[in-house]
Design a protein around this nucleic acid. Structure first.
Lengths: 188, 188
DNA sequence: ACCTGAACACCGTTCAAGT
DNA sequence: ACCTGAACACCGTTCAAGT
């Protein structure tokens, strides 16, 4: 017997609880105290498992990105992969209340080892024949576009109006297709 | 004589002070109390001139966008206009500390009259021959891309690493050119 | 009309102390 | 090792009261 009582918290349960609070209260209701309450614990307990709130947000954002990567199907060429990835990221962001705002505020947890995370991020594109340089460039552009779009789309009051002037889905695809198609001549 | 003492505040001085605090303290140091202190006034005084903090942030964001629109030179076609606008927006965002984060958090002050603001936003493109529909679509895509990129770029730790793997300036242009070029066939 | 003073209900975080 | 209790230095916002 290593311990008499199992610990009440671990990183995974902490992150899960944080998402639960986010879903229920939104981004500005996401406080350390509320997350703690959701876990039946005092706020300072969280600091045993995580350095500070910024790190917690970083971990949440990381999960959102990870879900997107995991959702991209096997695909035969980099154009298709980029398109599928962008769609997956968009729906991963839309899958959580204030998901885009969360990712905007959070610094990437990737900060721990940027070299490794850049490699992981570009690996699929490199496998499909792009050079590391172009892979990074294209991927950065697609992520930027998708994240920016998600924020645009999540912006309440403007949304209702734009909804009557354009189909978000279609316009997102329009921009995405344009970008990917425009990459074509640069892939050499 | 309408009043014995001129008011200490007005909206413009309030916004200017807010930018000053933002520059000095960054986004998380931007508190109502600090802005008030910068103006030699008590925090509650601000609420006479502005409904709440969100509205103040919205006004700041609006200024950043307005600066971008103002900086776009007269141009002969919509491709050029879109490219110039994106560059102007990127440098307007980069012109203030945490500019991208600010715009991410702020709801558009445009919320007041979305119809009018959408019209103003698309006017230049419509004047250059696009339909309102495509103008809105293209403009939304370009804004999303640029805002997303600026956030990407502003993200400290990742930045230093990426800086050694790619030129931000060049990669931004790569994606932008790709998108605008890809719009071409859709402009019909 | 425009601002102050005092207060309310919160925050994130630290740190000794408990087990 | 892991959590609590109490505290510190802040927040945004409201509201009576002053001028």
């Amino acid at each position: 017997m290593k311990r008499r009582t199992a610990p009440a918290l671990d990183r995974d349960r902490l992150i899960a609880a944080s998402f639960a609070v986010l879903e229920a209260e939104g981004m500005e209701g996401l406080s350390m105290r509320r997350v703690a309450a959701h876990l039946g614990v005092q706020a300072p307990a969280i600091y045993w498992h995580v350095g500070d709130k910024a790190e917690l947000l970083g971990l949440m954002a990381r999960d959102i990105y990870a879900a997107a990567y995991a959702a991209v199907p096997q695909i035969e060429d980099w154009r298709g992969w980029l398109r599928r990835f962008a769609q997956a990221l968009r729906s991963s962001l839309a899958g959580h209340r204030d998901g885009a705002r969360l990712c905007a505020v959070a610094k990437p947890a990737a900060a721990s080892d940027p070299h490794e995370s850049a490699a992981r991020i570009t690996a699929p594109l490199i496998a499909l024949g792009l050079t590391p340089q172009t892979a990074l460039s294209f991927q950065a552009a697609v992520i930027s576009y998708t994240l920016g779009w998600a924020m645009f789309e999540a912006n309440g009051p403007m949304h209702d109006f734009l909804d009557r002037m354009m189909i978000f889905e279609d316009s997102f695809e329009t921009g995405l297709d344009a970008m990917v198609a425009g990459f074509e001549p640069q892939a050499a």
